[in-house]
Design a protein around this nucleic acid. Structure first.
Lengths: 205, 205
DNA sequence: GTCTATAATTAGATAGAC
DNA sequence: GTCTATCTAATTATAGAC
């Protein structure tokens, strides 16, 4: 029988993406073959091309999907812009860490596999990444304007904060020394320190 | 003529490593072929095997060489342990950023290509990385004991600080908005904030 | 020390049967 | 929708000439 009974295109499509994410996160895009992905799904290599025109699109779709969903999720979680920056920063840090811990593989891929994107794809992903960086930068500059934050260089503080926060996903493991919530609380504290939040706000945290 | 006049083994050996570093940093280890490296050096692929037993060793030697040299350099730059932690932290941050900016490619490889190491090689590299993490952690705990730093979790602060500092090498470019020295100064300030350095020390910076 | 030639394997992608 | 078979090209690594 050439076609398994009960097999369905949409289900297989999801399995292909899942397998690709798992394998690419583990071994790296260039090191993973289409045959490996197919084996993980339980189909032959040729069948993959029903769901993706080529290997590059598989990577690109994973990364774009991740970043679009990330930005979308923040839109839904973000407080209104008129909210005090201290509140917005705390909300952002908790959102970011939570999201990145829960989707560590996609985060990892989107960070590590930029080099394997073809130029046009790279540009689109970079644009989405910059959009996300601007979320922090806007909160920081708003906080300085409010007098709630005190630091000399919002752009550099943004870069430092993103690196610091995203770093969590490189070492976090379920069942580690601290639960995710406790980690997030400590990172909120550290983000406030970097931003130069007034002691009052820091205590209130 | 099978052998170029004026060619020399040691010189070629260095060119092989240089080419490997440049190409792996740019395209990733798995995506770079031995033929590409050979072409960059100006020899045939077979000749590479005079200098490395296989492709894996090429990667491993780059990473181990980098980390051994990094630890060695810090040994020579580090103030005696009895030096106040504030001084030691400032020295460390400037050393780390300077070193990482000047050797961005090796740093990048050592961070991105961990997945492509065979198990035994991975273990050795991880051991060296942990040694380096302990440098910061020791300074932070010493600072807390001295009463110079105030933070709740030295281990987490270490992870945050390493991620923050190493992140510089992912975006730094010569001729950018700020010269390397100015960037380092701002990162010293941010490191002090994370560590919870007493205001007096922060002003002294 | 480097070259040419080649072995052995594997890759991405397609064609056509079912 | 999936399989088998296959094409074409590339890969790591080695052997042996020079």
């Amino acid at each position: 029988m050439a076609r398994k009974s009960g097999s369905s295109g949409e289900k297989t499509r999801a399995m292909v993406e899942d397998a690709a994410i798992r394998l690419i996160a583990r071994y790296g895009f260039a090191a993973v073959s289409m045959r490996q992905i197919a084996r993980e799904v339980g189909v032959q290599a040729g069948a993959l091309y029903l769901y993706t025109p080529d290997k590059q699109s598989l990577l690109f779709d994973i990364m774009r999907g991740h970043l679009v969903h990330l930005l979308d999720s923040w839109q839904q979680h973000s407080p209104p812009v008129e909210t005090p920056a201290v509140i917005r920063l705390e909300r952002f840090v908790r959102f970011h860490i939570d999201y990145h811990i829960m989707r560590a593989e996609k985060v990892f891929i989107s960070y590590m596999e930029l080099r394997n994107l073809e130029p046009e794809n790279f540009s689109e992903i970079e644009r989405l990444r910059r959009d996300y960086e601007h979320v922090i930068e806007e909160i920081l500059t708003a906080g300085v304007a409010e007098g709630a934050f005190e630091h000399t260089d919002s752009r550099l503080t943004t870069m430092a904060m993103i690196a610091m926060l995203t770093g969590v996903s490189t070492w976090y493991r379920d069942g580690g020394r601290l639960p995710a919530g406790a980690i997030a609380t400590r990172y909120v504290d550290m983000a406030f320190r970097l931003a130069g939040a007034e002691p009052l706000a820091e205590v209130a945290e």
